[in-house]
Design a protein around this nucleic acid. Structure first.
Lengths: 231, 231
DNA sequence: TCACAACGTTGCGCTGTCGCAACCTGGAGA
DNA sequence: TCTCCAGGTTGCGACAGCGCAACGTTGTGA
């Protein structure tokens, strides 16, 4: 029932190196869904019935602490996989996934994971490599949290977002989805207030351009200096 | 040339569910090594020529920051794999591995990874599941670093070490390898001084028993309370 | 168009943690 | 046995960042 063409997938990293026939087969097994902004795609602890490819939009992966705080563990950009619990030998999702904007997803039933992996070894390899990369990213983030101060972490978060999802505008590189001060604080382990103070400061220096749920990176050089400042 | 028997591997998680013949085959492909305390097993950025199984001992995985600080990313206990860069689609090691005590390791050449995975799908599945678990652990650690204070993180670190590697003694659960205050500080993103202050405090309350490169958990209950204290 | 709610800003006092410095202490090697 | 030194302890002053509180601003839905 899909009106989707295999060429849609061909250029995405998870499907790199796969034959047209393979892509067609994978597409035939998938169903597409829409999730409107703010809705849960899956929840932590829930049985992992599907794994997903984000065809369009932006997704936040969030974990909650026992006392109710929340931390943004990662962002998923267009073309990435999410919810691949089966690939990690789990049958529940380890975190929550929330659409940061209206999203379009492809979903495969988790119970087809073994079949798909067997039929498409290239896809399996790509997926495992992606999990490895996420592990390394996350370890890097632990190092960052352990050794850097708040200003550096916030600067890094903005630089990463701009690099991964930035869209060039006439003012600079705009982070291409709604992102609040609170989101930044939940990514960097600080408070809204401190983020606000930092961004105001950088804004008045002309290094960034703030706005309601909007950040434009104007002077990446300067921010990079903040991010790597020894003190 | 190995005097090692397949029964050595049979009970280890990475080899769970594998046939005796498979274990023999894997063992035949491996070489065993010793690393004395404090020596590098591999270094960050180095070409990943081998992947390892830790047969005996204890290994620290460490990352360095550009300014020379170091962070202990994880501990590897007896029976776990390490250096499996190939499983993550990499050909260099992403971190340093250092023997925390004298260690015995099995090593497989990385270029045999594909052959081994093809021949022993159970091993592959176990390995990918382990990487998934490490990813989830590491994400949990990011959440911890983002939301908890130093005392809670240090308490958690000690509880985890005691659980994973503790040996029951008449005083309590002894962490079974040399661990300094500095090590704890590098695990929790704080300073030696703060760790020392905390441990002294808990020692004088009788919750733990400190010593030179030695920590014994006496009252896990109390430490758990510290770890989860809202404030 | 208006009102409300979500988002953002800013001031101020407090404190957890750091950084430095000085000083113990126990074990290994000469 | 003595010496040396890595590891550990403790006091004190400094300050980054938090928590609270009050207020401004922007967009959305009735």
């Amino acid at each position: 029932m899909n009106r989707l063409d295999a060429s849609l997938l061909a250029d995405l990293p998870p499907f790199a190196g796969m034959s047209r026939a393979s892509l067609d087969d994978m597409l035939a097994r998938a169903a597409s869904f829409r999730h409107s902004k703010g809705t849960h795609i899956f929840r932590e602890g829930e049985e992992a019935l599907s794994f997903y490819l984000l065809l369009d939009g932006y997704v936040r992966v969030i974990k909650h602490t026992p006392v109710g705080e929340q931390v943004i563990v990662r962002h998923i950009a267009t073309g990435e996989l999410l919810g691949i619990a089966k690939a990690m030998g789990r049958d529940t999702y380890p975190a929550n996934a929330i659409a940061a904007v209206d999203c379009v997803l492809l979903a495969w039933p988790s119970h087809t994971w073994e079949v798909i992996v067997a039929a498409h070894p290239g896809f399996a390899t790509n997926t495992y490599a992606m999990i490895g990369n996420r592990l390394i990213d996350t370890q890097e983030r632990v190092v960052e949290m352990a050794t850097e101060r708040v200003a550096q972490r916030v600067a890094n978060a903005i630089l990463n977002l701009a690099r991964e999802t930035g869209r060039q505008t006439d003012e600079g590189i705009l982070i291409d989805f709604p992102i609040s001060r609170q989101d930044i604080s939940e990514m960097t382990g600080t408070t809204i207030h401190t983020v606000s103070r930092l961004l105001s400061g950088w804004d008045s220096k002309g290094w960034i351009k703030g706005g309601r749920q909007k950040i434009t990176l104007v002077d990446g050089q300067k921010l990079t200096m903040v991010a790597s400042a020894r003190d």
